[in-house]
Each structure stands twice: as structure tokens, then as C-alpha cells.
Design a protein around this nucleic acid. Structure first.
Lengths: 225, 225
DNA sequence: CAGGATCCACTATTGGATCCCG
DNA sequence: CGGGATCCAATAGTGGATCCTG
């Protein structure tokens, strides 16, 4: 139960991730000193937190990648009974200052996703949380086509946000990247300027990758091996 | 209320079809002497029958195209509130003798679909049957890509049928063309040989085009204009 | 029965709402 | 709050079952 040190190379990180493949969240949680709740409603995010510890991610919430030295972000992907991603993947919150970076190349989204370690985790809802197994991990950098898809969505959404049209954005927009609420509850509000630059209250939102996209990404990574 | 004569050319048929665009089924039914029931559960197929009469299709059930001289089949396409096909399109029943034609080029499916007049009809379930409007008609012949898609599905399904694997076919198979029950009720049975050539009872089935495919076809036809 | 199709219960998807931890 | 995400009511989709007419 000693803290796992930060990995010093991509290879070390990937090897470590693949070493824990096949373990259950209960087993892995015990290794890193995390008790896995039996009720998953009260345990959103626990899989991600266990894997952070198990792989030696820098602790705490930061505006930096989980593995600072390597510049790699860790993302766990919940898989349904048929092996497909069952949820969208949170990328980052949307803030005005982040949108001040007005081009895709410098966007928080691309920075976050430039290098990602995807760790699939079984998540069939009938399987108790502690019995869900970790799958084979892959290190992803978006290829040209994947970047084109994300960029097209990002540019449209960024324009709407910059134009003060935030309230007209719904989760329907975007082929691979979407904007959805990111808040503790539906009454959360944060200040933002509207179309005329006046301040108004708006619900906190974040960028997410659609499940169909992460599915395609995982399929490519498996095929590339 | 005189019978409408059979059209003598493709142009005449299309002109006639476009002439009735915008009319409701109630109005068109009155023209051809068909009373439109108010309850649509008791009126499956009535839109097709009204349009047959209105456009001068050869009356009666035959193994021939609706417009014999022109070799054109009539298909009405029900559209939902957003303008998309809301149902699959029946193509033809499956019989052993039909499957004896073992190649796609001579298949009943391709013969039926070689030349089709598609007539969209509003079908939002909240709109009373008699108030649903006829849309703009298009004459379709499958292009190379559309034929490739149908052929791929047909060949797989035909093989299964010929091999006596009918019972293993479900509506899930086929990207654009699928096999589904075609019977007055779930107890209907018809004789067919199984894998070993023995006779067994099986439910009558037919080939259908998926809604996503007819949607794409209509979109292409509109774009081509 | 063949030909004209739609019905509708069930499954799959989804996107707005929400939960925990440091 | 920001970062780790999942929940779940509502909608969309689908495919097995069914209805009418000649």
C-alpha cells in the first residue's frame, strides 16, 4: 500500500496499466487503499480514482495532465456487456478564459486529448462495482481524421460560445464532440456574457466525447496493434 | 370518379403523381371513390390503394409491376413529423421458388426495385388519416452504390434461406435490406425444407428496405434534381 | 393468399441532471 | 470548485405481429 511512484516513461506507464488488466476494481482498490462502495450511485468516478493511484498519477485536481512528466491524461472508459463504451467521456469544463484561446490548435480540448491513456473498465450495471474488471489499456494520440472530426465540432461550438449563444447549445450538436451540463445539480449557475456582452447567469458546461467516437478510437487502436 | 387510365409514359406518370402532391388522402380518396376510415389501425395500406387508383395502376394483386406497360412499381413512403421515413418498405414475399433464382441479377427483389415511383405521404400519428398530405413523388432506379448495398445483404440472406437456415434469420441482419415476418398473424405457417432437406413449418417472411435506406434514397433523388 | 402496408411493445440511445473527493 | 465520472427519464429506433382488400 506504498504510494505508486510516477512512471518515468510511456513504456513504463503502459506496462504498468497492462499489468493490472484482468484485476477487479475491488482487488485493485485494496492494493491502493481505496474502499469500493457497493452502491455505484455513491461511487461515480471511483474507478478513475483507483486507477490514478494504481498507475502513479500525480494526486489532486490540477489543470495539468495526470502524468505531468509524460504529458499523458488518464481516462477510464466504462464498457457495457457487449464491450462498447456506455457513457460519453468528459474532456474539460468550458470557461470564458478557455475560449479566449480562439483556435483549435491551442484549445484546452486538444491539449487534454493530445496524449491519452485509455483504460477500459467493465461496467455492466448488473455487475457489482467491486467485481468489474479492468481491460487492456491503450495510449492514444488523435490521428488526422480524428483531429479533423473533433476540430469541426469544436470550431462550431467555440463560435457559438464566443458569440454568447451558450444557451442555444444542446447535447445534440457535434458529431464526435458535444457540450453538456457539468454541474453538481441543475440549479448551478455561473456568470457569462450574452450576445450583447451583458453578464447573465448560465449553467456550467463541459466538452464530452460521444460514445460512438471513443468506440471507433478503441477499435482503431486495437486494429493498429 | 371515372377510372384513371394507365399512364402511357414515365413522364405522364410522374406528372400525374406530382399533380396530386399537396392533396390530402381524404380529398384524393373522394376523387377515386375510396372512403378513408378515421381509425388508421383498420386502414393499413389504404394510402397505397388510393394512390394506385389515382395514378392508374393496373388493378388487382399480381406478380407484375403496378404499371405494367412502364415496368414501374408504386411505393408510398410514410413520413414522420420531421420528414423521415417512419416505417420499413415491403419489397416482396420470400418463397422457395423465388430463391431458386440463385443470383441477385435475377432476384425478385431487384426486379421489384428496378424502377420504383416513390410517393411520400405524411404519417405523423397525431394527424388523422384523411388529413395526411401527399408529397412530391420521385422515380427511382438504384444506382451502383445502392445496388451494391442491396446485393451484399441479399446474397447473405439468400444463402441462409437456400441453406435451410431460415429460422436463424432475424430482422437484425442486413444493412439496407432485411427479412421480417409477413403474415396475417404470428401463428401462420408455411412449409419449407430445413438444413437436411426435410420439410418443416416456418412463418411466412418478406424482404423489406430499412427506413434509413429509403431516407438516403429520397435525399439523393431530391439532391439530383 | 399475395399485395397494400402500419402497429406497438420493447430495446437502445441519449443528453440533461447529478454524485463524490480533495 | 475542478476533476473523476455515472445516473436515468425520456426519446428514438426496431423488428415481430398484425390488419384490410381483391
Amino acid at each position: 500500500m506504498l504510494p505508486v511512484p510516477e512512471p518515468q516513461s510511456d513504456e513504463e506507464l503502459l506496462a504498468r496499466a497492462r499489468d493490472v488488466a484482468g484485476l477487479t476494481l475491488g482487488e485493485l482498490g485494496a492494493r491502493v487503499g481505496v474502499e469500493v462502495p457497493s452502491e455505484s450511485l455513491r461511487a461515480k468516478g471511483v474507478a478513475g480514482q483507483i486507477l490514478e493511484k494504481a498507475l502513479g498519477a500525480t494526486a489532486g485536481s490540477r489543470a495539468e495532465p495526470d502524468f505531468v512528466t509524460l504529458g499523458i491524461e488518464l481516462k477510464t472508459i466504462p464498457l457495457d456487456a457487449t464491450g462498447k463504451p456506455k457513457e460519453s467521456t468528459f474532456v474539460c469544463s468550458i470557461s470564458l478564459s478557455a475560449m479566449a484561446d480562439t483556435d483549435w490548435e491551442r484549445s484546452t480540448v486538444l491539449k487534454k486529448l493530445a496524449r491519452v491513456l485509455f483504460v477500459p473498465v467493465e461496467a455492466a450495471s448488473k455487475t457489482p462495482l467491486r467485481d468489474r474488471r479492468v481491460g487492456r489499456a491503450y495510449c492514444w494520440s488523435p490521428n488526422a481524421e480524428e483531429q479533423r472530426l473533433m476540430r469541426a465540432d469544436w470550431e462550431r461550438l467555440a463560435l457559438m460560445i464566443a458569440a454568447g449563444d451558450v444557451e442555444r447549445i444542446t447535447g445534440h450538436l457535434g458529431e464526435v464532440l458535444q457540450v453538456r451540463p457539468k454541474a453538481p445539480h441543475g440549479r448551478s449557475r455561473r456568470r457569462a456574457p450574452d450576445e450583447e456582452g451583458a453578464i447573465q447567469w448560465t449553467m456550467p458546461r463541459g466538452f464530452y466525447l460521444r460514445p460512438a467516437f471513443t468506440r471507433a478510437v478503441l477499435a482503431r487502436l486495437r486494429a493498429d496493434e
